[in-house]
Design a protein around this nucleic acid. Structure first.
Length: 279
DNA sequence: AGGGGTACCTGCGGGC
DNA sequence: TGCCCGCAGGTACCCC
C-alpha cells in the first residue's frame, strides 16, 4: 500500500500528534505482527510507559524512537494503516490488530486488512544494523541524492529492467509500483528497458521525474485509489490519486499522445505504460 | 550473488 | 446464486 509519499505523510502527522506522549496500554489480536527478537509478550511489557521521542522514515519503514534507547519499527506493506484518534474513531475501522493507548487518552492503532504489516522493537543504536534498514538505497528526497549518486546506484544493477530497478529498495528507497509507473511515464522511458541501455539523457529525465513526482505526491498527502486502501492517520484519503497519469489506466488514452495505455505483468506486478511515448 | 517461485493474508469484482 | 479466478500500493525466504 503505502510508498514513500504515503509513509512520509503518516510520519509528519505522527510527529505532530503523538510526539512527547507516553504509552499507557497495549492491545493486539495478531501476535504474528511482531518480528525480530522481541516477541509479543515481551513487547507488551517493555513498551509500557515509554515516552515517544520522535518519528522517522527510512524508505517505507516508520521508526518510532522511544526513551531508554528503544525504537519501534513499523512496516505497513500492502494494506497497513496507522490511525490516531479517540477510541470511537479507531473502532470504526474493521481491521485494527494493534493499539497503543497514549497518555492523552488518544489511541494509535495499526489496521491491516491483509495482515502483512510488521512491528520490530529494537535498540535505537541497532536499528541501522537490521536487514530492513542496512541495505536500503538513498532517500530520493534528500538533498544529497544527486544525479551522480543516482547513476552510481543504477550501475549496481546493470542487468535489470529500469522499472524493476526503481522498485528495488536497495537501489533507491521508497519507490513502489504506483510511483515507478508514474515516474517512467513522466520521463518517457519504457519500463522494460535495460538499465545498461539507458542514455545519459534518459537517466537525467528519470532522475528529474523521481524528484518531481515524489515531491508533488508528498505535497498532496499521497495517493488513495480505492476507498479501502491508503488513508492518513485521521482516515483522510491522499489527493495525489487524482493526479496519476498511467497507473491503473489500462485501455484508457495517454494524457500526452492519446495512444492506448497498456498493462503488462512484469516480475509479478502490473506495469502500465504508453507504448507510443515511452519507447 | 542474484533471480524465480512462493508464502504471508483478505476481499472484491468478473466470468461462467 | 455461487464458485473459481485474477488482482491488489510489499517484502521475505527458500532453492538453484
Amino acid at each position: 500500500m503505502p510508498e514513500l509519499p504515503e509513509v512520509e505523510t503518516i510520519v509528519r502527522q505522527l510527529n505532530k500528534e503523538i510526539r512527547g506522549l507516553k504509552v499507557k496500554k497495549v492491545w493486539f489480536d495478531w501476535p504474528k505482527l511482531f518480528k525480530g527478537k522481541t516477541g509479543p509478550q515481551k513487547f507488551k511489557k517493555i513498551i509500557k510507559n515509554k515516552k515517544i521521542l520522535g518519528i522517522r522514515r527510512e524508505g517505507k519503514n516508520i521508526l518510532i524512537d522511544l526513551n531508554d534507547g528503544l525504537t519501534c519499527l513499523m512496516h505497513l506493506k500492502l494494506t497497513g494503516r496507522i490511525l490516531v484518534g479517540d477510541s470511537e474513531f479507531v473502532q470504526k475501522d474493521s481491521y485494527v490488530h494493534f493499539k497503543l493507548e497514549l497518555s492523552n487518552k488518544k489511541i494509535l492503532a495499526l489496521s491491516d486488512l491483509r495482515k502483512f504489516a510488521k512491528i520490530i522493537l529494537e535498540k535505537t543504536e541497532e536499528v541501522k544494523t537490521l536487514k530492513e534498514i542496512k541495505e536500503l538505497g538513498p532517500n530520493p528526497l534528500a538533498s544529497n541524492f544527486t544525479l551522480e549518486i543516482f547513476n552510481e546506484f543504477l550501475d549496481r544493477k546493470k542487468n535489470g529492467k529500469i522499472k524493476e530497478v526503481l522498485m528495488n529498495q536497495n537501489i533507491i528507497s521508497g519507490i513502489g509500483n504506483i510511483y515507478a509507473n508514474e515516474i517512467l511515464w513522466e520521463a518517457k522511458v519504457n519500463p522494460f528497458k535495460d538499465v545498461k541501455a539507458l542514455t545519459f539523457k534518459e537517466r537525467g529525465e528519470i532522475y528529474k521525474a523521481i524528484k518531481k513526482i515524489l515531491l508533488k505526491a508528498v505535497e498532496y498527502n499521497g495517493s488513495t485509489i480505492a476507498d479501502e486502501m491508503y488513508k492518513d492517520t485521521k482516515g483522510k484519503p491522499g489527493k495525489y490519486g487524482k493526479m496519476l497519469r498511467v497507473y491503473q489506466r489500462e485501455k484508457e488514452k495517454c494524457f500526452r499522445c492519446n495512444a492506448e495505455i497498456k498493462r503488462i505483468v512484469q516480475k509479478g506486478r502490473s506495469t502500465f505504460y504508453c507504448p507510443q511515448c515511452q519507447k
